[in-house]
Design a protein around this nucleic acid. Sequence first.
DNA 1: TGACGTTGTGATAAAATTATAAAATAGATT
DNA 2: AATCTATTTTATAATTTTATCACAACGTCA
Lengths: 222, 222
Amino acid sequence: MAKILIVDDEPDIRALICRYAKHEGYDTAEASDGLEAVDICRSEDFDVIIMDAMMPELDGFSACKKIRAAKDIPVIMLSARGEEYDKLFGFETGADDYVVKPFSPRELMARIKVVINRHVKTSPNKIKVGDMEIDTLGRNVYIDTEKAELTAKEYDLLLYLVKNIGVVLTREQIIENVWGYEYYPTDRTVDWQIKQLRSHIGKCRDNIVTVRGVGYKFEIEK
Amino acid sequence: MAKILIVDDEPDIRALICRYAKHEGYDTAEASDGLEAVDICRSEDFDVIIMDAMMPELDGFSACKKIRAAKDIPVIMLSARGEEYDKLFGFETGADDYVVKPFSPRELMARIKVVINRHVKTSPNKIKVGDMEIDTLGRNVYIDTEKAELTAKEYDLLLYLVKNIGVVLTREQIIENVWGYEYYPTDRTVDWQIKQLRSHIGKCRDNIVTVRGVGYKFEIEK
DNA sequence: TGACGTTGTGATAAAATTATAAAATAGATT
DNA sequence: AATCTATTTTATAATTTTATCACAACGTCA
C-alpha cells in the first residue's frame, strides 16, 4: 500500500486529492505548508509527495529541495496558471512531474501511478548488476566482493548509469543529473570521469559502453 | 537533438518561438495553420508540437486530434485567456500542456523540456518489424536476436525508415529528418548510407526497398 | 538494342568524436 | 599557509565516421 503526502495550504484542495487518492487505495497524510511537510518527512517515509508550489511559510520549491536533500522521495508539483513557471519548474526544482491548477483529479492520479512505478524500479538499497554490487546507503561498490575505490563524482556517475541500465545517456543528460543544474562542465570532463570510473571498476569497465555520436550507457552483455 | 513544430498563423509569434527554440538547441519547423501542420506530420516526426488554438483553416484542437490519431506526438497548446478548461485538457483534444497568451518565452521553453522528458519516459521503447527488433532506449538493433552493429547515422536512418514503414521517402525528406535542416549533403550521400545500413542488417536488407526515381521505403514482404 | 538517367559500390580524404595525458584550478585538511 | 586530493580544463593522439568522388551496374524507354 503506497503512502502519499499531500501538501497544500487550501484545505479544500487537500480534501479533494485525499478523497481521490483513498479511492485509488493509497494511504494519505496532509500538511498545510512547506515547513510542516519537511517536518513530517523527517520521521515518515512516503512513496510520493503532492506539493503546491505557492504556500506560506515555505514554498513548495524550497520544501522539495530540503526533503530531497535527505530522502529520495518523488515529488509532483502543483502550480497555479500564470505563475513564474520557469523559476518553479526549470529543472532546478528536482520535481519529478508537475500538474497545472486547476487540474483533473483523474489525471493527477494517473501521474501518481507513473511516478511511483518509476521510482520503485530505481531505488533499492542494494543494486546488483552482473558482477557488480552497489550499496547505496554506504555508497560502496563491490566488484566480485572486492571493494572499488571511487571518488564522489565517480560514484554518482556510476549510480546514474546503472539506474538507467540499458539506456543510452547523452553527455547533456549526464551533466544535468550528475553535476546538477547550476554547474556546467564541458563534455570533455564527462569523458574524463568516465575514463577514471572505468579504470577503477576492474573488469566491469566493459559494462560502460561508449555509444559514438550519442553518449554512454551501462549494459550487461548477454 | 529534439525537433519542434511551431504552428501559428501569426508569423511574428512563430519567429519569436523559433528564435528561442533554436537558442535552446532545438531543430524547428513551422506551419501557419492546422491543415499545414497535419500535412507536415504525415512524413515527419517531431518531439513536440507548439500549436495555437485559434487558427484559420483548421483550429488547433482539431489539428491536434488529427495528428494524434496517427502519431503519438505531445502537443502544447497556446490559447488566449478565457478558453474553457475542458476544451484545453479534455480527453478529446489530448493536449499535454497549455500556455496562455501572451506568454513568457522562457516559460514556454521550460515546458517544452518537461513535456519532452515526460513523453520519452512513457512512450514505447521497443519496435518490432518482421525479423527486426529495435530497442530505442539502448539504440540497439537485433536481427533474429543477433545484434546489428550500426553507427549513429545508420541507426537514425533506420529508425526514420521504420517509423514510416510502407511510406516512400524522398532523399530530401530523409536528409531533413536524419541530417537536420541546416545541413545539406548530396543525394549520393544518402545512397551511400543506405548501402552501409543494408550491409549491416543481414537478411533485413531486403526490407529497405529502392523506389527508382523517388527514394526509399521500409517494407515487410507478405 | 542502345542511350540515358538513376542507383550501388569501393576508395579516399576530410571531419568529427573519443581516449588519454598533462596542466591548472578549486576545495579540504592539517 | 601549506599540502594534498579531487576535479576541471586544455591539449594532443588515436580512432571512427562521414562526405564526396569516380565509375560500374542497373533499369527504363524510345
